[in-house]
């Protein structure tokens, strides 16, 4: 009987069979590299030569590395500035473009354009704009706004904030789309009821819209903080492989890349830096999860 045959094929392991490909993928490309990174961080292995167990030497070396302090300051500051900007700006933009107005699809598309563009290409364009002899400085000097070129790419903080500006400009469209779908779930009646009670636009934003999309905001915040902690391309292109003048604008990922690349790359030390990056990335995620849980209670 067909029904009996179907039952015979459904064993206890049948669901596991379905997830085996995904589990294998996860084990080979995520779990194993993560475990291996942890193991390598206790060795002095290099790209072409095998290493040996060196205990906590790499970690001790890491905390004596004068560039690490700059890298952590840059990376954390980058995250702290990007986080509020990329949590709220896309939400405000989503509120603007969710309205059904003429040409609104055109504006949504334009706002999404930077997301599609390659990060490297965008960073190169920004470099061309902000260079000492670039378009921005040229215009500023022609309009007599400045007498000397503004050192966007050679001043430590201006370079960092230029990279933040690039990240925000490029990322705002992506998070706007996420918010657009979340705003569809905020009940219109709540807005109408609040309006009847005399709540203005700003009051309704904080008391109706924000609570309505709070789950999405937490998700967006987590995505932003993880991405910001891994900042590389923007700083690498704008500041060059030196990480700006004197390496003052290096990020943790740039340090990892510098330590681990090349035929004589210090894979053990780069692994220790990766473990550190993992630890400081997990911190904000836990904080955001707790924040969300306490808001729920």
């Amino acid at each position: 009987m067909p029904a009996r045959r179907r039952i015979r094929f459904q064993r206890w392991f049948s669901p596991w069979l379905l997830v085996v490909p995904a589990l294998l993928w996860l084990a080979v490309f995520s779990l194993w590299p993560a475990i291996n990174t942890g193991v390598l961080s206790f060795t002095n292995v290099r790209t072409l030569t095998g290493g040996e167990f060196v205990g906590l030497t790499n970690y001790a070396q890491m905390f004596q590395d004068p560039q690490l302090r700059d890298a952590i300051v840059n990376t954390v500051l980058y995250m702290l500035v990007c986080l509020p900007l990329l949590v709220f700006l896309p939400l405000l933009l989503a509120l603007l473009v969710e309205r059904q107005l003429p040409f609104i699809t055109f504006f949504r598309t334009v706002l999404y354009f930077p997301v599609i563009a390659s990060a490297v290409v965008v960073a190169l364009i920004w470099q061309w704009l902000l260079d000492e002899r670039g378009v921005v400085n040229g215009l500023a000097q022609q309009l007599n706004l400045t007498h000397a070129a503004v050192p966007f790419l050679t001043d430590r903080w201006l370079l960092l904030f230029s990279a933040i500006g690039l990240t925000v400009w490029k990322g705002v469209g992506y998070y706007m789309i996420i918010y657009l779908s979340a705003l569809g779930n905020v009940r219109q009646e709540l807005h109408e009821a609040a309006a009847v009670d005399g709540a203005g636009l700003i009051r309704r934003f904080w008391t109706v819209t924000v609570p309505g999309v709070r789950g999405t905001m937490v998700l967006v915040a987590v995505l932003i903080s993880v991405n910001a902690m891994r900042i590389f391309t923007e700083l690498y292109i704008l500041g060059g492989s030196t990480g700006g003048v004197g390496g003052q604008d290096v990020s943790v990922v740039m340090l990892i890349q510098g330590a681990g690349s090349g035929a004589n790359g210090q894979l053990g030390y780069a692994s220790a830096l990766s473990v550190l990056l993992f630890v400081i990335t997990v911190g904000p995620m836990i904080a955001l999860a707790r924040l969300n849980r306490s808001a729920d209670q």
Partner: peptide
Amino acid sequence: AAWTDAMDTYLAQQIALAMTGK
């Protein structure tokens, strides 16, 4: 022969710090 890109980058960083008076 033992000179690597990482060394070159670090030398450039250190010289830049010297040239900017740091």
